[in-house]
Simulated scan of single mutants.
Amino acid sequence: MSRADRARVGAYGAAACAAAYGSMKLAQALGANALADKDPLPPQLREMLLARDPLFVASHWLLAGAAVVGVIVALATVRPWGVTVPRRLLLAIAWTLGVFMIARSIGGLGFGFVGDALLLTGVRPAPVEHAALARTLARWDLLLWSPFFLLWGMCWATAGWRLGRRGSLANNRRHFR
Rank of each mutant, 00 (worst) to 15 (best):
M1Q: 14
V57K: 06
L144Q: 15
D5G: 03
G160K: 03
H175L: 15
Q28C: 11
M154P: 01
T84I: 12
F56E: 08
W152G: 01
T77N: 11
L119N: 02
G10Q: 03
A51M: 04
M1W: 12
I72P: 01
A132P: 07
R173P: 08
W145G: 06
G98L: 00
H130G: 04
A92R: 13
M101N: 14
A66H: 10
N171L: 14
A29S: 14
L75N: 10
G10K: 03
A64D: 01
D53F: 15
A103G: 12
G112Q: 03
M1I: 07
A126E: 05
F149T: 00
R6T: 00
A138W: 03
F149G: 00
K25V: 07
L142V: 08
A159E: 02
F111H: 10
R104P: 00
G13L: 03
L120P: 03
L55H: 10
A4S: 12
Q28V: 06
V123S: 06
L89Q: 09
L75D: 01
P125I: 02
S2A: 10
V57E: 06
R8P: 02
A67I: 11
A29D: 10
A51D: 12
A117C: 00
W95D: 00
A76G: 11
D39V: 06
F111K: 03
G22I: 05
G10W: 09
R87P: 06
W140D: 10
D37V: 02
L119C: 02
R52E: 14
L30Y: 07
L90W: 00
R174N: 07
A18K: 10
A103V: 08
L119I: 14
E47P: 00
L50F: 12
P86A: 04
G98N: 02
W152M: 02
L120V: 09
G160R: 08
G98Q: 03
L133D: 05
A126L: 02
D5A: 14
V78N: 04
V114N: 00
S146L: 05
A170M: 06
I106K: 09
A159P: 05
L91F: 04
L118M: 09
M1F: 09
R104E: 15
G112E: 13
G164D: 03
N172E: 15
R124F: 04
F176T: 14
I102N: 11
L62K: 01
G164Y: 04
A4C: 12
V123L: 09
L119W: 00
N171S: 12
I106W: 13
N33I: 13
W152E: 05
R8G: 01
A11N: 01
